[in-house]
Amino acid sequence: MRENHAIRYLVRRLALAAITLVGISIISFSAVNLLPGDPVSSRYPQAGASEIAAMRADMGLDRPVYVQYVRYLTALARGDLGWSYNTNTPVTEDLAQRLPASLELSIAGLLLAIAMGVPLGIVAAVRHNRAADHLARLFSIGALSVPVFWTGLVGIYIFSYGLRWAPAPLGRLPLTVTAPPQVTGFIVIDSILAGNGAAFVAALQSLALPAIALGLSLVAPIARIMRSAMLEALQEDYVLFARATGVPERDVVLKDAFRGALVPVLTIVGYLMGYLVAGNALVETVFSWPGIGRYAVQAMLTSDMAPINAILLILAVAIALTNLVVDLAYAVVDPRIRHGLLGA
């Protein structure tokens, strides 16, 4: 009965996600194929009419729209995301090559943001309406308001050019350092695996500034949701009763209330991912970080349609999956949801 409930719920969620994805594929397909501007003539402005017609026929652009859409879908199913005119490489290859760099930066930034945002939110809630709360709020609104690309530039000016604590913003490793052999794709980890201390330190130094810039841009949403979730949890009767039975205040906050606050905090994970991706594009551009964000910006600057299309599609899938995982995570965190209140 309860399993049934959970399975029905899961199926419904998957169906909704599928509908969304079909919608997204239609939109991204239309964006590339139906908007004014012909991909052939805009690519080769010097080509003659007959050449263009030949190329269009070659690419299947003379076929009816629904045929083109089906072809597009079958290509997608094979993992074929098209060809980038910029790099002259299949988009799939381009993305695979750049993914580790983006992941390394994102994970580092996210960890920093959590390490700052969660304690900040908890302190603000515990010291509600007192100086610490106002300061935390001021800090998080400030962090939300300073553009991440500007934070990056100021950081570069002070720490790279001024104090020379950080290397020049030229990617994941300075030119003088040889990269360790690729295992995980994360240079920080690969250099440990290779026992290459110099590369490890250099990689960390290169990672520090962009990760901090990215992390700062994510602190505000984390701290704010943490604060309001904690405030709500601290009002709960079970927290009052825990105090009444002599549970030390430290545990009341960090165990009882924190556990209760996790559910609302989970709701913003999907939203946070959007933030993370957008921040990545800006930070990677500022620091010449060879990741997907910078690749996407390059594609958009040059109207390189296949990569734009692929990135939008992958993002939508990733965010839909994240939301699905988050929904399942609720059940792990909260036994009430686990026990069949799912569908209700």
Partner: peptide, 18 residues
Amino acid sequence: DIVQSFPMLILAMALVAL
């Protein structure tokens, strides 16, 4: 839902690019 499944900045970038 479909529109909101993209990060706003990325969507805006794509729109301007298009």
